[in-house]
Design a protein around this nucleic acid. Structure first.
Length: 590
DNA sequence: GCCGTTTTCGGCCCGACTGTTTTCAGTCG
């Protein structure tokens, strides 16, 4: 958590320095450090204690010292001093799209404005157009930008972005002369939420493509449009950016517009050192401007002596170094996924019948799914009594007897109660094949209470997997206080699986936490937490997060064959069950 | 402010679009 506060602080310092007209490279250094901290997956306190902060990219002696200062005192002297020298309101102005440090300075110096509300009033009064370099149009745009800001344009969840992108790409693909289309930007990198949707098209003539884009049925308002680049707001207020390039530049443009910005900056610096120049049109030799690559994205990387880097890794978090020495991970792919866990039916709060879900899993080509309806104390979700779950088990056993090459695991999503005990007694858990442990209550407990609660569940031999380990809901609920390092350690020791919950509102573990768990050798699982049939599709979203976490097939429970999976579950039970005789898992009792 | 198989000093990524500008600055991604 501390790294996010520090990241914001560094970003604000950069803004303030920019306002003061400081050295641009010094400003950039703060921005780069902010980005490093925002995506850092490890334990910052631990790193600081070990005196290893300077191992982070973009962190040198000075910034390391500032990080230590913040970790010990909870504030940053340099920031406090800087803030006093800059008029209040500046940071607020910089939040307005289209307003940078230069304009902010004019607003403060010439018009004595202090807040965005002042700015809005000044624009309405027509006072802005009197400023040098200002006209009516600029004034109008500022008012529009403030209006948009007030609406608080929300970021899209991944599933919304994916389907919106699909709609646009299908339309653009049909335009005559279009040779290639792709998503780019943060959607292609599968970031957990998407601000603007970026689309890229290869065509010989950009005109018809731009036209089709601006006149699409989903286009609400055109924000900007040039010959090859346009931005629109959809009728639902989501921003979509389109760029059209010549076919010969498609690979270079794809690389360029996929980002991340930090990844690209480092890539282009690498190019400069090799006497090359990278832009959205290709890779060029500086000496004679000869073009070395551009049509295919992989060629761009190859020209720089790098292996092609999967988009999900492009965050300047070690992927460039790995690509240089051929040590990129073999990321998990859709074809590696053999099953899904944590699926609800109308036996608790799901919408669909058991039989329908079971068939849907088979239709997707899965080898197994685990039916995991809620346990008794979660009344709001129609949690099942012990009698009910035993009844469900009977039905599933009968179903299984008729299936070949596909197995439905008898499971349950069992509440971890306030004291860390499970919501069903062990003799019920022992009869289940797959036990998901979850926290659905007591979110406000202290960090030690919640952590101990989860640790106790992890040490229960029958608990297979801990679901949504931090309990957050994106944009709605903060994660509860939990010591993830301790959870990872215990999970590793006990062969307990941690979930990457693929529900687009959850994504829990998140990418950085999952990467940390993966580094420590914890077994992970992607589960869709399906509550209706269409949610099974969220597997694609979970895959994106797993890939961002550098997860390989061998680290993912979903990639085990059915027999390997059953063996894995049994292993934990035999390791932890002590003197109790281990039960066979997945056996078809009568 | 960071960083180094060209450098511990002197570099530090690149181009489109907008509005207002007769040649470009500011902002953005």
């Amino acid at each position: 958590m501390k790294q996010h506060e520090l990241s914001t602080l560094f970003e604000q310092i950069a803004n303030l320095l920019e306002y003061q007209g400081e050295n641009v490279f010094r400003i950039r250094a703060y921005r780069r450090a902010a980005e490093t901290l925002a995506t850092f997956s490890g334990d910052l306190d631990h790193l600081a204690t070990a005196g290893r902060l300077r191992e982070l990219s973009g962190i040198g002696a000075d910034l390391a010292q500032k990080i230590e200062e913040y970790l010990t005192t909870g504030q940053l002297d340099a920031f406090e001093r800087l803030r006093k020298t800059v008029p209040s309101g500046v940071l607020e102005f910089l939040e307005v799209p289209g307003v940078g440090p230069k304009l902010a300075k004019v607003f403060v110096d010439r018009l004595k404005l202090k807040t965005v509300a002042d700015l809005e009033q000044a624009a309405r009064d027509g006072r802005l157009r009197a400023l040098p370099g200002f006209g009516g149009k600029k004034e109008e745009n500022i008012l529009k930008a403030i209006g948009l800001m007030k609406q608080g344009r929300e970021r899209m969840t991944l599933n919304v972005a994916l389907s919106l992108a699909q709609q646009f790409l299908t339309r653009l693909r049909e335009v005559p002369g279009v040779l290639n289309v792709s998503t780019a930007g943060s959607l292609r990198r599968m970031k957990e939420t998407i601000g603007d949707l970026d689309l890229l098209v290869a065509a010989r003539r950009p005109g018809p493509v731009m036209e089709a884009f601006q006149r699409s049925p989903w286009t609400g308002r055109v924000l900007a449009a040039g010959m090859t680049k346009a931005s629109i707001l959809t009728t639902r207020g989501l921003q979509v950016d389109l760029r059209v390039v010549k076919p010969a530049s498609f690979g270079a443009a794809l690389q360029y517009f996929t980002g991340s910005k930090e990844h690209n900056v480092v890539l282009r610096e690498l190019a400069v050192r090799k006497g090359l120049k990278v832009n959205e049109y290709g890779v060029f030799r500086v000496s004679d401007r000869h073009r070395l690559a551009g049509t295919e994205e992989a060629d761009v990387y190859r020209a720089l002596g790098l292996a092609w880097i999967p988009p999900e890794l492009r965050e300047n978090n070690g992927e460039l170094e790995a690509a240089k020495v051929g040590r990129l991970p073999t990321l998990v792919e859709a074809k590696d996924i053999r099953g899904d866990f944590h699926i609800h039916t109308n036996w608790s709060d799901g919408a669909d019948k058991l039989e329908v879900i079971v068939q849907a899993g088979k239709d997707r080509g899965y080898e197994y799914i685990a039916i995991c309806d809620h346990s008794q104390s979660l009344r709001i979700a129609r949690g099942m009594s012990i009698e009910r779950i035993r009844e469900q088990m009977g039905i599933l056993r009968a179903l299984n007897a008729r299936l070949t090459g596909y197995q439905v695991l008898l499971g349950a999503e069992v509440d971890i109660l306030a004291d860390g005990s499970m919501d069903y007694p062990d003799e019920v858990l022992a009869d289940l094949d797959f036990v998901v442990g979850s926290i659905h209550s007591g979110f406000k407990q202290s960090e030690s209470a919640i952590t101990n609660r989860i640790l106790r569940a992890i040490r229960n031999p029958y608990v297979t997997l801990i679901a949504h380990p931090t309990g957050r809901l994106i944009g709605e609920r903060e994660p509860y206080q939990v010591n993830l390092e301790a959870v990872f350690q215990a999970a590793k020791e006990t062969n307990t699986v941690l979930e990457i919950n693929a529900c687009p509102k959850r994504l829990d573990l998140c990418d950085t936490a999952a990467r940390r768990a993966q580094e420590l050798g914890v077994m992970l699982a992607i589960s869709t937490d399906t509550h209706r049939l269409t949610h099974l599709d969220h597997m694609a979203v979970g895959l994106g997060i797993a890939r961002r976490a550098w997860v390989e097939p061998r680290q993912l429970l979903n990639c085990l064959t059915r027999h390997e999976l059953l063996a894995w579950i049994a292993r934990k039970r035999t390791t932890l069950a002590g003197h109790a005789a281990p039960r066979r898992v997945g056996s078809r009792r009568r």
